[in-house]
């Protein structure tokens, strides 16, 4: 019985630690399909460049987001905002995303509309 409570507590602690409200979340699709179309260099690039440029962010690998036609795809959640997904991302596009979208909050091209609810 306590273990279930334990799990719940763990839950709370975890979301505290990652502090999703105050940090930029970057998710890179890293399923076989994403990796095959080149998401690994994008993942490495985002990780390195964001820390090099002193932007506090959590870059994580995730599974397939389902947008095969636009791979590699990355999803970015700015603090306090909803997630935005970008398609056809290479390192050049990633640079544009960091400099223009993340740093200056400019609207840039390449956003994929997300049309689903999650259970």
């Amino acid at each position: 019985m306590d273990l279930r409570e334990n799990l719940k507590a763990k839950n709370a602690a975890l979301s505290q630690k990652d502090n999703p409200q105050s940090i930029i979340q970057v998710k890179v699709t890293m399923a076989t399909c994403g990796i095959a179309s080149g998401s690994r260099p994008v993942y490495e690039y985002m990780k390195e460049e964001l820390s090099k440029r002193n932007i506090p962010a959590r870059v994580s690998q995730v599974g397939c987001m389902g947008f095969c036609y636009a791979e590699p795809t990355i999803e970015i959640t700015m603090p306090g905002k909803g997630p935005l997904m970008f398609g056809f991302v290479n390192t050049k596009k990633a640079d544009e995303i960091i400099e223009r979208f993340i740093r200056k909050s400019e609207a840039i091209e390449g956003v994929i509309p997300m049309n689903y609810e999650t259970a």
């Binding site: 279930r4 839950n11 975890l14 995730v62 599974g63 987001m65 389902g66 049309n115 689903y116």
Partner: peptide
Amino acid sequence: MARQIRIALRNCGVIDPERIEDYIARDGYM
């Protein structure tokens, strides 16, 4: 309007599949 509802794919593209913490944080193992 959202035509899609993701149940089986609820965590795909959302969590890091190599971190159990991510899964637990989304009600995993509850």
